[in-house]
Design a protein around this nucleic acid. Sequence first.
DNA 1: GAACGTGATGTTATAACATAACAGTTCGGC
DNA 2: GCCGAACTGTTATGTTATAACATCACGTTC
Lengths: 133, 133
Amino acid sequence: MGRRGEMLQAEVLAVLRGSESPLSAYDVLGELRKTRPKIAPPTVYRALAALTASRLVHRLESLSAYMACQSDCHQSASILSICDDCGIVEESVAPEVLEDLSSVAGKSGFRPARHVIEIHGVCASCVGAETSG
Amino acid sequence: MGRRGEMLQAEVLAVLRGSESPLSAYDVLGELRKTRPKIAPPTVYRALAALTASRLVHRLESLSAYMACQSDCHQSASILSICDDCGIVEESVAPEVLEDLSSVAGKSGFRPARHVIEIHGVCASCVGAETSG
DNA sequence: GAACGTGATGTTATAACATAACAGTTCGGC
DNA sequence: GCCGAACTGTTATGTTATAACATCACGTTC
């Protein structure tokens, strides 16, 4: 069961890990086509879905893009800080803040299941570049 | 300056306010076409962009959809709780949690500019329906 | 070992979301 | 009235995502 697909997932993961910034599904598709010219969008989307489900890959909702997970283990959702200048994304884990968020949302009886937390801004090195430039 | 477009923006806002759950840009387009059959996507996207900029409308990144802002005034970003069951979205404001998020992200020197916080889950009334059903 | 069921994968086509690029319109200033 | 700036309309297309179905690999059964 599902031994075949793991090869493809590994390739997709390798492509994502090879990139400093998130890639769109079609960027990944383009990379994969260098070795397998005939690969089609649904194949890539399926691999991305599997990787996302196993938490090896994050989808950046506000970019419609994907990145390899940077942190080793995390049960809790990540906080993704996206540099709008250079595109780099940094991943942080802060379970207590997640708790706070859940409790704010839960006040009315809402039952949280999945957190999407993306912070757009400018990363340290781009801030530095701006200031000095 | 820009007096003409305000009419359209008001219509778009009215459409969004008339819906319990978020609408896609093309849903809005469909509604508007009931009265103006010839309206085209860029017109709607322009209106949505203007409304988003003036904070009267939120874009839900994880749904590619738009909703009218529910809270009166907010300088700070909203926490959007999305019911994956019935589609209803609830808006909460919690500046202190935003602060915490910013400080987590800011540890490495990142300078936050815009927060995207969307929590998927099940709303109180759908939780009730599940339990009783 | 051939027929079959099941689930993964490939393929085609298209749906859904979004914007570039330019044409046309309105309106103020001259 | 003419011009230019700003806004709006229109066409076309780009980008992201998935439905639907064909095919393939593999284990099971007989």
